[in-house]
Design a protein around this nucleic acid. Structure first.
Lengths: 149, 149
DNA sequence: CTGGCTGCAAAAGTTTTGCAGATAC
DNA sequence: GTATCTGCAAAACTTTTGCAGCCAG
C-alpha cells in the first residue's frame, strides 16, 4: 500500500505532474475497485464520499492523466461512457473483457492467443500492431445456471 | 441491387416495420460506403444531399432499427460517436477492425482464429460466447512507408 | 513564489424524446 | 383509417473548456 502510493507519486513526478489530494483520492477509488470497471461518473460518486468538495471536471482530468501515464486502462463498453480500471504494468496490451449480455457483468481475461493474430495481420495486411481491444459478449456461468433452473 | 432492395423490404416487413423513403435513403448511403465506417452525423450529411428535408433524429432512429434487425453493424472507435457499416449475413459475428494510429484509417479484417479463443474462454470461465468485438490498433502499411521516406 | 491544479459554470457534442402532423399499408 | 413514422425543437447525457483563485513543490 505504502509502496503503491510511493510508486504512484514517482510516476506522477517523473512526468512533472503534481500529487494532489484529489488525484490521490481518484486513484484510490479506482484501485479499491479493481474488478469493477467504474465509469467516470461512478468514480466521481465514490470520491465525493471521502472528498465532498471535488468537482466532476477534476475527475475527468485525473483519469485522463492516469491513462496517459499508463496508470489506468480505459475501457469502452460502447454504451456512451468511458470506464477505467487499474493497468497492470506486466501486461503488454492490457487485458480483455467478457461481457455478460444478461446481467451486464464484466469479467477480465488474459489471452495470449492474440499474439498469433497480430502476426497474421502483419503478414497479410502489412499492419504493425501496437495495441488491441477485445470484447467478447455472451452468457456468463452464473446466468447460464440460472437459465437451467 | 433490385434483389438487395427487395431483401431489405422483406426484412423490414417481416418485423412489421414500414419501408419509408427516409429509411431507404439511409440504407442506400450505408450500402454505398461499405468500406467507410460512417458516423451517424456523416450518414446524415450524405442522406441530406438526396433528401434535404430529412431530420437527424430520423437517421438515428433508422440506424438503430437497422442494427436491431441485423442489417447493419454498429462500430465504436471509442471516440464518442457511433459508426455503422453494412452487416454481412454470412459472417457469424461481424468482422473486425484495424485502426491506424497515425492516419485514423479503418481497415476491415476477417480472422477465424478467434473461434479458438471462444473455445478457450468457455472451457476456462464457463462463458458462452455469442459475439465479440476486436479492435487492433497500430500503423498501417501506407503510414509505415511514409515514415521510412 | 509560481506554474500547475481545482472548482464552478458554461459550452460543446452526441444521442434521445415529446409531440403534432404526415404517410405507408 | 390508423398505427407507425417523420421533422422539429427541446432535453438529456457525457465530456471539455475558460477562468479566477488555490496550492504543491
Amino acid at each position: 500500500m505504502a509502496a503503491k502510493e510511493k510508486e504512484f507519486g514517482n510516476t506522477l513526478q517523473t512526468g512533472g505532474y503534481r500529487l494532489t489530494n484529489q488525484r490521490q483520492a481518484v486513484l484510490e477509488v479506482i484501485s479499491q475497485n479493481r474488478e469493477k470497471h467504474l465509469s467516470t461518473e461512478e468514480i466521481f460518486g465514490e470520491v465525493k464520499k471521502k472528498y465532498p468538495q471535488i468537482g466532476l471536471a477534476t475527475v475527468y482530468r485525473a483519469v485522463q492523466l492516469f491513462e496517459e501515464i499508463g496508470l489506468v486502462q480505459r475501457i469502452s463498453l460502447d454504451d456512451g461512457r468511458m470506464r477505467y480500471q487499474m493497468a497492470d504494468p506486466e501486461e503488454k496490451h492490457g487485458h480483455h473483457h467478457l461481457i455478460c449480455e444478461i446481467c451486464g457483468e464484466v469479467f477480465d481475461f488474459q489471452e495470449d492467443m492474440l499474439e498469433l493474430l497480430e502476426e497474421n495481420v502483419f503478414l497479410e495486411k502489412g499492419f504493425t500492431v501496437t495495441n488491441h481491444s477485445v470484447k467478447v459478449f455472451g452468457i456468463c456461468k452464473n446466468c447460464s445456471n440460472q437459465k437451467k433452473q
